[in-house]
Design a protein around this nucleic acid. Structure first.
Lengths: 197, 197, 197, 197
DNA sequence: TTTT
DNA sequence: TTTT
């Protein structure tokens, strides 16, 4: 529920491959940088000057999974999300603020590459087959708490094992104490399947 | 011209009265802070927790003039603009980044207070009569170059006198109310109406 | 899931009180007409001519319930939905098409009257207390099939009794046959379930 | 000027080649049909059922010129416009209504085919070179009066010769390549004002 | 850092 | 009528 409207709509290209992390609960969190270009006319020279605007995107839930799997550096994508500015501490102890576009359960993502080309070519990790134009709305709404702390701790770079199945506790030491502190936001918990297509 | 889409849509309330400045050419530049509220459910307590997101808005052109005149702390407003992140230097010499929603010629603004109440009450500068619900599209496009440096120099806190005409320096050091009225900048030429907002 | 983007954003005023109906399962369906105004300059006279655009809105789910309860003729509202054109038969047997803005689980609604005034005054059915500015996202997504036939049959003008509880079949003759056959249990609000359209 | 917000955002594919007409003043008017797809889950079978929504688009001005030149059947495109319903008379003398998305000076269009392929291949009229991803905002506002009458009379299927200049009647009945060149879209043209940013 |  |  919201008193107000907070909506961002972007179409642009990824500057890098997406970075995928996982919450202790196995939910994907993806960070992207997206470029939108605009040209303006220089007043002195009359020349058209290209200007690129870079956007930081954070995706949660199923959209994040799809983005992590199918988007690559250079991919063109439509994104709908909301603005969120988070505060963090610089190494000098001073407050810094970073504004991101959060794409959660209420957001949308749509891949716009008609051929799904990864734009980079050197992404050996790219999946063999990929969808060409597909849009995702998350399956269930969720409120974003104040807990997300950007790139900071508590996230695993490893995908969860079979998140949708019951399985015995992981003995693996890779899953560290960070998992214990399960106060991390868990944007979407009720996925009903892993791969939507 | 743009290769991409960069659009922000907000409905929220002003945290403070707008700050109006003027370029050397007499064009208004207005800074706003806008709050959009959202509630999320705390996972531990199950309580609805209100969360306010603050947005920095920069307006140019006629929309800026209208906003500066009619919006006040607490005003509810619809805004359409684009995201822009600008770099600046902190006092420690380090780079900082601030993301703002730029409402220029391609943006839109709409006052949503059915009564135009200023929400604060102590804004003696508020004009007597104000429109109730009015939307503004800028009359002609304009490209935003890279030159805008936020709050920094080159801006005047005083509105220009009759910018579109050559005129001798104003002797009066005080800006009287009458001047306020008669100093409407008219940067764009093809207005199809006579209402100044 | 969508291959494409289909989004409508409107701010306007209701032309009439909302019409609420209920599906056999007790889910609210609300029809609205919304006016958005625009002025254009007549090319001959140079006069500003007001022009009102009327939009047909159909709301489903919890948003519909809220709209039916709190919106009245004249209410100002923000609506986000999608375009849908449905075909129907005129009395002359010919095909007609009506385009509506569908506000379902993926849509949004926000009341913008700072005072919630009903704008009409003669709506005795209006609830005593009403929210002032509140936005609604539906709690869970739902796919809109092709079956919705507008104003046509299968809908009841009467609200369901205690839709969130199990209850014995209603002996009341007020409840039409259609309602009788729909004695299914009614999970509270997040229906991803049995809406037949 | 508008009291209200009336905005439509679509991403979809053209069902046919665009139809271009010209007003007596030589302004291009383009009609498109755009498909947006959505899948919904059939309640009986649980199957995903594809559903296509068709949208009627009308474009004016420079955007229309670009669309007429570069879009083809199958082209994927982003469109931003406004809803407009116009009344017309059926052959039976009865009123009919058609809702269209109007893309005028305040609208936007962006071609999303990474390769500009025409999707049909048999469009011999397609220009040799075409932009790949380009977005257009109209360079100057224009009010849409009540005068547009859909497909009806007053429009020419022939493009104007040099509409922006006074010139003697063209002797050549054939539209030469040079003319083609000179009618190339020029998304950004005349920013002449003095805003220094 | 992307894209054309 | 498009697209995947």
């Amino acid at each position: 529920m919201a008193r107000g409207v907070n909506k961002v709509i972007l179409i642009g290209n990824l500057g890098q491959d997406p970075e995928t992390r996982y919450t202790p609960n196995g939910n994907a969190v993806v960070n992207l940088t997206l470029a939108t270009d605009e040209s303006y006319k220089d007043r002195q020279t009359g020349q058209l000057v290209p200007k690129t605007e870079w956007h930081r995107i954070v995706m949660f839930g199923k959209i994040a999974e799809v983005a992590g799997q199918y988007l690559r550096k250079g991919s063109k994508v439509y994104i709908e999300g909301k603005l969120q500015t988070r505060k963090w501490q610089g190494q000098d102890g001073q407050d810094r603020y970073t504004t991101e576009i959060v794409v959660d359960i209420n957001g949308q993502m749509q891949m716009l590459d008609s051929r799904g080309g990864d734009g980079g070519g050197m992404n050996q990790g790219a999946p063999a087959g990929r969808p060409q134009q597909q849009s995702y709305n998350q399956p269930a709404p969720q409120q974003q708490g104040g807990g997300y702390q950007g790139q900071s701790g508590g996230y695993s770079q490893q995908p969860p094992q079979q998140q949708s199945q019951q399985h015995p506790p992981q003995p693996s030491p890779q899953h560290s104490p960070q998992q214990q502190q399960s106060s991390m936001p868990e944007p979407v918990d009720d996925f009903d399947d892993d791969i939507p297509f």
